[in-house]
């Protein structure tokens, strides 16, 4: 956090002064035509090192992120591997027309939104509740140990998470069905039944991320002014009341910002985990846009159509993120970047 007084619109004050002085000097002197060139050359001679440091990163961005954006034009082309991106003929919006009459694609869009909504509904409150609960635990070592453990799954790869889920939910060998049969019911083929995919997927997400997600809220809680609690104690408030009247209102801005980020990421269902957990019999509820893109493009080789679906996803995501940032700017003085 820099000292606000020393900044003018985010630019350090020294810089503004120097610029102003230079501007005045420029105006007072008669312009020599090639003086700017000299100045630019001079600047690069003096500061070449920072440009040298920037260059590799810039090239990397161009090669690995901006060049694919150029390649996105195949969404409007009849792409053939032999003709390449530039040589393939334009066909306009044809792929998008195909997409929006394709039941599987539309289903993937619906599933993406559905799964995101479930994540929002159940996955979003989980870390908040967890943080509020951690805040009430008095025993320091107990709290520390619990935190250490619940953060752990965040660092485990989705392949392992999927491996655990597949093993635990297996119809014959899995622990879940062992319990179900103890209770006297028939085993359930969880991973082959469409109605079970979403609960398992969302539940796995909560199990993996709720702990780690609570860090942000715990930090916000730690930032609450202690004198608020002290005066509440004087007023005879109990912990439950303090949680509702002090803690939650104090961390509301953080909650709001995190919520907005989540809404901005609605199109970003963690498709890696979907790929690892779904199977043809559960596509009906499990297939999301990016998994559809993966199958159509990388597995079936319909690159152009799949790229069009990816472009649709990216544009929707972009609009959502931009809207989210505008909203967060309005709600608080904090923007996300």
């Amino acid at each position: 956090m820099s000292d606000r007084n020393s900044d003018v619109g985010g630019i350090p004050i020294e810089e503004v002064v120097v610029e102003a002085q230079e501007a005045l000097r420029d105006r007072s002197q008669t312009r020599v035509p090639d003086k700017n060139w000299v100045k630019v050359l001079d600047h690069f001679k003096r500061e070449w090192q920072i440009y040298a440091m920037l260059l590799p990163t810039l090239i990397w961005f161009v090669v690995f992120l901006y060049k694919p954006m150029y390649g996105l034009q195949i969404a409007f082309k009849d792409y053939s591997i032999f003709r390449g991106v530039a040589g393939s003929p334009w066909i306009g919006w044809e792929h998008f027309e195909t997409l929006f009459t394709n039941d599987q694609f539309l289903r993937a869009v619906r599933n993406t939104i559905y799964i995101s909504a479930l994540n929002l509904l159940f996955g979003f409150p989980a870390p908040i509740i967890l943080a509020l609960m951690f805040n009430e635990v008095m025993h320091a070592t107990y709290k520390r140990t619990a935190q250490t453990i619940v953060y752990l799954p965040h660092f485990i790869s989705s392949v392992i998470i999927a491996g655990i889920v597949i093993t635990a939910f297996s119809p014959s060998a899995g622990i879940v069905n062992t319990f179900i049969s103890w209770l006297g019911f028939e085993p359930i083929y969880f991973l082959t039944q469409p109605e079970w995919f979403r609960p398992i997927f969302v539940g796995t997400g909560i199990w993996q991320e709720a702990g780690f997600g609570s860090i942000v809220f715990l930090a916000a809680i730690a930032g609450v002014n202690p004198s608020l609690y002290e005066s509440a104690v004087v007023d005879g408030a109990n912990r439950w009341q303090m949680m509702w009247k002090i803690t939650i209102p104090s961390i509301l801005p953080t909650i709001l910002i995190m919520l907005i980020i989540r809404i901005g990421n609605v199109m970003e269902v963690s498709f890696e985990l979907v790929i690892l957990l779904y199977q043809p019999s559960t596509y009906e509820t499990a297939d999301v846009v990016n998994t559809w893109v993966y199958r159509q493009g990388l597995q079936s080789g319909q690159y152009d159509l799949a790229a069009a679906a990816g472009l649709f996803n990216a544009v929707v995501a972009f609009v959502l993120v931009m809207t989210a940032n505008t909203l967060s700017r309005r709600f608080s003085r904090t923007s996300l970047w």
Binding site: F64, P68, G310, M322
Partner: peptide
């Protein structure tokens, strides 16, 4: 900008 918009799987793969 690359945080807000990316070309997606297919163009990245073809690249």
């Amino acid at each position: 900008f690359t945080m807000w918009f990316n070309a997606g799987l297919i163009p990245f793969f073809l690249n």
